[in-house]
Design a protein around this nucleic acid. Structure first.
Lengths: 340, 340
DNA sequence: TGCTGGCACTCGACCGTTGCAAGTGCCAAT
DNA sequence: ATTGGCACTTGCAACGGTCGAGTGCCAGCA
């Protein structure tokens, strides 16, 4: 075994021990707990080298070492093997998710499941509408200048939005608009609707065009955006279980979990379902959360991810277990969505 | 001034100082900060009496006194004067709430506003549907045995639910049912709909009755229940700002804030909008939250409350300020709902 | 009767000291 | 390259003493 290999072994051992005990780990404890075939002194040399390279650090002169963000990064990228889920966990995923009826239900069950499996805070973004097809569009007049737009998709998803019209409208106009929109949108996916619905304005008289444009604009842009911005959160209580070090981070993190904008930035862009992505500590410093890590995965029926789900916790977290849980849940939810 | 009056003054002073400083308050500090016209020794006698009666307690022999739950209760019921809101706060309420479009928006703005005003965690229950009138009912077939029921109310509220039918249905049946339901329900309030819609089943042939009954049952019961169970939460981060003593309570409280069942029990029954109700510490021990207090108020357009809103925090909270804020926001939101 | 000053007492908080143990870095030897 | 030995650093816990805030009680006084 070459030197470099052992150094990486040492780093792996440090990360594992530190995550398990939450205490700085020293050279002696290391050789006791892991059967590395060398003496503490040798380990010390390796540790000094690791510290020089920035993978570990010591909180004070005479304490053990603690992994740095850079150390966790290396651990996640090259050192950790995916921890297979236990049979009980697999069973939990199935029984928890199989009873779900509609999309809301899937999302809310998923987020609670993730929180329970990882014992951390879970976040699930609602799937984007862009791949759904339109089942029905309903327009309801609330007042002469206010119309409620309701969009129903084939996945059973309902989106609503109130539109303020630039001019008065009457029931006849709304009725006609409803009929025309449904005629060209029902059964189409969103991209197709977008292409066709913009022409709709021309079919109406000039005096009605402003109102029609307002409705179609809402239908196209706002509904998608609003939907993509929706997220479900669960397991915030788990975050309170961590001690001192994480306490400072707790308040900003809880606030962030309530702010959908920050939350979505934290989840990041969902491009493809795999692989599971990990952002560690300072890597998401833009949000001011330098002591928290995020483990996310895209999910959705096809090869393209519709949305992201993930888990949020302290940098000192069980990465292999969390990655496995997030990956498994994302795969299972994707399967469910594909079956619909 | 009689003896009893001064004892109550002392209790009031203790509560105010303790809330402000978070530290046990002694007899000397008391006469220094408040201009009670007597000496520390006299105060000590009063304090001893108050302790005998269970209103205050001392954490250890040689520390100051701390209010008990019973002491807070007396303070809230008889000693605290309603602290009027500052002009800035009143302005904040108006500017924050006036831009709200639909009901969702009102609720989400309200809950954030409450959290911000009180610097604690806020909870707002969605208004019950029972006073709304039906604007439109939409049925959408998702599969031969699955129908999506969408209810649109005059307040712009949209409720949805997937129904599993006991037998296959076709478009014709669903279309007829949609037409009949809308014919008798549109413009009616919920009580009226309930009375009339049950007869609907008889109009259909025996082979369809099971399916029709399933849909109407969903329409009547589930939609209301589900809606009444919905709550919005904000400001959980504020809870992390309290020290030690509240840390133990933090995890169960955060969990409770995610569990709508517990949360609704915490909010309590909303009967009439006023007055603001306060539940202190052990008074809601059924939920296991013996160190948290809840300040709630009903709200809604009429004299009857449609739902509850409130604030959750440690027993050591600024009751007068919180009560004033909750009351003012509840009144303002009620006014907005009435104007709709 | 109620208030007050005085006094002895209690007990947690604070502080400096000390001993301990964990852990390190370095070095000479293998 | 690895190892055992050794001196060194340093946080931490235990200890003891002092301090001060706060109390309860009592005798005196209006």
């Amino acid at each position: 075994m070459s030197v470099d290999d052992r150094k990486l072994d040492v780093l792996r051992a440090i990360v594992e021990d530190y995550v398990a005990t939450q205490e700085p780990v020293g050279s002696k404890a290391l050789v006791d707990r892991h059967h590395l075939g060398v003496s503490p002194a040798t380990i010390r040399n390796d540790m000094a080298a690791l510290e020089d390279e920035g993978y570990i650090a010591q909180p004070h002169t005479s304490a053990g070492r603690v992994p740095t963000d850079k150390g966790y990064r290396l651990f996640v990228d090259r050192l950790s093997t995916v921890k297979p889920l236990s049979a009980a966990e697999k069973r939990a995923i199935q029984t928890f998710l199989d009873g779900a009826l509609d999309l809301d239900d899937v999302v809310s069950r998923t987020v609670r499941l993730l929180a329970q499996l990882t014992r951390q805070a879970a976040v699930v973004q609602y799937p984007s509408l862009s791949r759904s097809t339109v089942r029905h569009v309903e327009l309801v007049m609330l007042a002469p200048t206010r119309v409620l737009v309701v969009l129903i998709t084939d996945t059973g998803r309902v989106e609503q939005r109130v539109v303020d019209l630039p001019a008065d409208a009457d029931d006849a106009l709304v009725g006609e608009l409803r009929a025309r929109i449904n005629a060209l949108a029902v059964g189409q996916d969103f991209a197709a609707v977008e292409a066709r619905v913009t022409e709709l304005t021309e079919r109406f008289g000039p005096e009605d065009r402003a109102a029609v444009a307002a409705v179609t604009a809402t239908l196209l842009s706002t509904l998608i955006e609003r939907h993509e911005e929706r997220v479900a959160v669960a397991g915030t209580g788990n975050l309170a279980r961590y001690g001192q070090e994480f306490d400072r981070e707790l308040e900003p993190l809880l606030s962030a979990l309530e702010e959908h904008v920050v939350l979505l930035r934290l989840l990041g862009e969902a491009t493809s379902p795999t692989p599971v992505r990990v952002r560690i500590g300072s890597e998401n410093a833009q949000t001011g959360l330098s002591a928290t890590s995020v483990v996310t995965s895209g999910y959705g029926p096809g090869e393209l991810a519709l949305a992201s789900m993930g888990v949020v916790g302290p940098t000192r977290m069980d990465y292999p277990g969390t990655i496995a849980a997030v990956g498994a849940v994302a795969r299972y939810v994707s399967k469910i969505l594909a079956a619909h």
